[in-house]
């Protein structure tokens, strides 16, 4: 994995929310087809990192390169057109639109996106719910819709922020299974996660983030052996 050319390279990334300096030199990379997680305590800067990649956080310094070209200088709405999809923590389903309208809203940015039938196959819960207002879905269904909406655009590099937060274990398993399917399809995923078991069940590598810096990198194979180390980072 490590030897191949990196799809995304983030180096010495600093980021600010207004005056407050949140990212202090994040450096990490993601190879094509990998699932990589960012682990860390609340407030470590994981979500901010995703938002900085998407350009939602505008005040940034350092380098973010995707497929070899710089994306910091791009206007925010251009970033998704590179095939990068963002599923935010709050899911971002539009309340005024129904399920189908939410699904069809984002423009198709690349060929190879999933059709509606494929999507319903991946997330059977959404089938038959076309006319339901988006936010009337359960939390898990909203999460599925948020992911599905990105898959339809053809994005093959997906930033997923805490997809399992607040969801029942059964739903978490369903989402894990669907992410496995996506991985088999060759999609690349950066996952921010608090749920270590979930992360371990699907990821290839883990980065540990502390106070806006990557402090460690752990391959998934050695994760069980590294639990003490990891707990010292994440434990209270």
């Amino acid at each position: 994995m490590r030897e191949q050319q990196h799809l995304l390279e983030v180096s010495n990334l600093n980021g600010w929310y207004g005056e407050s300096h949140v990212l202090h030199g994040m450096t990490f990379n993601v190879g094509a087809g990998e699932i990589v997680t960012l682990l860390g305590r609340n407030g470590a800067g994981k979500t901010t990192t995703l938002r900085a990649i998407m350009g939602v956080v505008r005040k940034r310094r350092g380098a973010i390169t995707y497929k070899g070209s710089d994306i910091i200088s791009l206007p925010q709405h251009k970033v998704p057109w590179l095939g990068i999809g963002y599923v935010p923590e709050e899911r971002g389903i539009f309340a005024t639109l129904n399920v189908l309208e939410n699904l069809m809203l984002p423009p198709v940015t690349q060929s190879g996106g999933m059709g509606i039938d494929d999507i319903y196959q991946l997330f059977p819960n959404l089938r038959g719910r076309d006319q339901t207002p988006g936010t009337r879905l359960s939390g898990g269904e909203q999460q599925m819709l948020a992911i599905a909406r990105i898959l339809r655009t053809g994005a093959d590099f997906i930033l997923l922020d805490e997809p399992t937060e607040g969801l029942a274990p059964v739903i978490v398993e369903e989402i894990a299974a669907s992410l496995q399917v996506l991985k088999q399809r060759g999609l690349t995923i950066v996952l921010v996660e608090q749920n270590l078991r979930f992360a371990a069940s699907i990821a290839d590598r883990h980065y540990v983030v502390e106070q806006g810096v990557v402090v460690d990198e752990i391959a998934n194979e050695v994760l069980p052996a590294s639990m003490d180390r990891l707990n010292s980072y994440l434990g209270v």
């Binding site: 998407m54 939602v56 925010q76 539009f94 639109l97 423009p107 940015t109």
Partner: peptide, 22 residues
Amino acid sequence: PFGHILAAIRENEQRARSLGLN
């Protein structure tokens, strides 16, 4: 679809933008 995009923008402009909408 144009109307749906307007609704999305009205609801949350930032979110619409990060879906690639100008």
